[in-house]
Simulated assay, not measured.
Amino acid sequence: MYSTKLPYDYSLELNDLSDSFVTGKSVAVDTETMGLNYFRDRLCLVQLCTDTGNNFLVKFDDKNYQATRLKELMVNPNILKIFHYARFDMVMIKMYLGVIPHPVYCTKIASRLSRTYTDSHSLKALCYELLNVKLNKAQQSSNWSNNVLSAEQIKYAISDVMYLHKLKEKLDIILEENGRTELARSCFQFLKSRILLDITGWADEDIFSHSSRKDFT
């Protein structure tokens, strides 16, 4: 379903991608949920932007998460999935779709490794500094379970993915300049293990630490 009310075209699908979805070597991905607790708050929306700039929104009801084509995309080894804060989105995709996306790239991790001169690594901060784009985050906490999404929600959802390819290009340059490209790749590869740790009880524990405070008592 295409809209002429927005400054860009998009396709809104129910419960899975349609046959019209085509991408090249990469696709930007984000999720919208009922909240930030992945054991409690369900997945409502997965938004995608292809490397050719086409936007797709997959809206889920509360019962149907079969999403065969979307799952196939998430695990296609030939298509890079670009996230911002991949850790959360990948957990939600694992919890509700049953797959862990791979291969992946996380602009937040790339920013933390490359932009060490700042503590601002949000998508809004990255878009403003690297692309001179001001994002409107007003709909971030809106109700994404609504049967009909508002134009403002759709604009917000698309804006969360439409700049990720350009951000990756900028961050790759900074990573290379600082000699941290391979370190970033290793972090991206570790995300699969990080997601499994999160959903099996080690979300808040640093298992790499030599000891915990309890060991000193």
Rank of each mutant, 00 (worst) to 15 (best):
L36E: 05
V27D: 07
I93L: 15
K59V: 13
T52G: 00
P7Y: 10
T200N: 13
T116C: 04
H84V: 00
T107R: 10
C106Y: 09
G179C: 06
S114F: 06
L70C: 00
K124Q: 07
Y10K: 07
A151S: 05
D51A: 01
V27H: 10
M74P: 01
S141A: 03
T68D: 07
N146V: 13
R213A: 13
K63T: 15
L12K: 09
Q140L: 01
R180A: 09
D160Y: 08
T116A: 03
L14H: 15
N76I: 13
K59N: 09
V75T: 15
S122K: 13
N146L: 10
S142G: 02
S209D: 11
V99G: 02
L175Y: 13
D119S: 14
H121M: 06
Y156H: 08
L57Y: 04
M74D: 07
Y96A: 07
Y8A: 04
G53I: 00
Y65T: 05
Y65P: 05
N76R: 08
L130R: 05
T31Q: 02
E72I: 11
Y105F: 15
S193V: 09
V91N: 07
N178I: 11
N55A: 00
K94H: 06
T68V: 11
K166T: 12
V99E: 08
T31C: 12
K166E: 03
D215T: 10
C49E: 01
N37D: 15
